[in-house]
């Protein structure tokens, strides 16, 4: 995984007036581990002084991505490491999430259509919101399978500060 990380961080991330440093950390897969990871990322972004809404968006997108890794890439009977890398530029944050679980079905991210809610009560969807939220709240979503790793990268725009 180390070589992969270098490849990702070598990509142009853009200079940042807010003092850009790419931050990376990894943790073992697990539902409660996702909570800790989210708290750690948000803590690591605190110095950017983003709006409450921006922090909310980041937490929501990361929660959906990480839950998908825990539930689908690794699944209930597998654990493995999940790595989060983020780089901040002037007007966006770029995230890469890396895991070594199973490949996305058909090698691409789900379409993430908005669930149909014009249905009777008993047919109301209880799931399928995750990819819709991820696609709705991110830009430049890309998925790559490299060796035995899944790499999901995306950008979240933030308001520029003077």
């Amino acid at each position: 995984m180390a070589r992969l990380n270098r490849a990702i961080s070598d990509q142009p991330g853009g200079g940042s007036p807010r003092g850009s440093n790419d931050i990376r950390f990894s943790f073992p897969s697990g539902e409660f581990a996702v909570r800790t990871a989210l708290a750690t990322v948000l803590c690591g972004l605190r110095h950017l002084a983003l709006s409450q809404e921006e922090y909310g968006t980041i937490e929501l997108v990361l929660a959906e991505v990480l839950n998908n890794v825990v539930e689908h890439a690794y699944g209930p009977n597998e654990t493995g490491r999940i790595e989060i890398i983020f780089v901040n530029a002037a007007d966006h944050l770029k995230f890469s999430i890396i895991d070594e679980g199973v490949e996305m079905p058909s090698g691409e991210t789900p379409m993430g259509k908005c669930a149909d809610i014009d249905v009777p009560l008993e047919d109301m969807p209880e799931g399928g919101f995750g990819w819709f939220l991820i696609r709705d709240l991110t830009k430049d979503l890309t998925y790559r399978r490299v060796g035995s790793s899944n790499i999901l990268s995306f950008r979240i725009n933030i308001a520029t500060q003077d």
């Binding site: 909310g56 929660a63 209880e126 919101f129 939220l133």
Partner: peptide
């Protein structure tokens, strides 16, 4: 904070 799983659980509760 509610994620899509939490949202699903609220819908299921309804």
């Amino acid at each position: 904070f509610v994620d899509s799983s939490g949202l699903g659980a609220i819908v299921a509760s309804m």
